[in-house]
């Protein structure tokens, strides 16, 4: 359901862009979705394919879903590591003073239009 909320916001922004640029049809949309953004790919794709049926310019839009790996930085040893594999604790020095660098965002990359 969270997925549907994001889909609606993405579609709204792309439809506005299509209007502004006087696009005939949006053929493809590329999104970069972080591994720890909370988005479940299957739900997202289902929600997307359902929601585009109600749009003006995106009825046949193909979705390119690119997953972005989550990376965490350790403040103590200044190294990075894979968030999903190791979680909050740094695998190099076992510090918990770590923060996420990438992997949370949902990013609209580009669209192919005619």
């Amino acid at each position: 359901m969270h997925e549907l909320g994001i889909v609606m916001h993405v579609i709204k922004q792309i439809e506005e862009l299509a209007k502004e640029k006087q696009v005939h049809e949006v053929k493809e949309l590329t999104l970069e979705i972080g591994e720890v953004s909370g988005v479940v790919k299957e739900y997202f794709v289902d929600a997307f394919n359902w929601a585009i049926k109600r749009t003006e310019h995106m009825q046949n839009c193909k979705l390119n879903y690119i997953t972005i790996q989550a990376i965490t930085y350790c403040e103590d040893c200044k190294q990075t590591y894979e968030t999903v594999k190791y979680g909050k604790e740094c695998p190099h020095c076992h510090s918990k003073k770590t923060y996420l660098v990438t992997g949370r965002d949902v990013y609209i990359k580009d669209v192919k239009v005619d």
């Binding site: 922004q13 999104l31 965002d105 990359k109 005619d114």
Partner: peptide, 18 residues
């Protein structure tokens, strides 16, 4: 014939809500 072109967006999905 219509030509297909790419528009770079580079914007967070949450940008309009923000």
């Amino acid at each position: 014939m219509k030509e297909i072109k790419t528009i770079v967006v580079n914007r967070s999905a949450y940008a309009d809500n923000d």
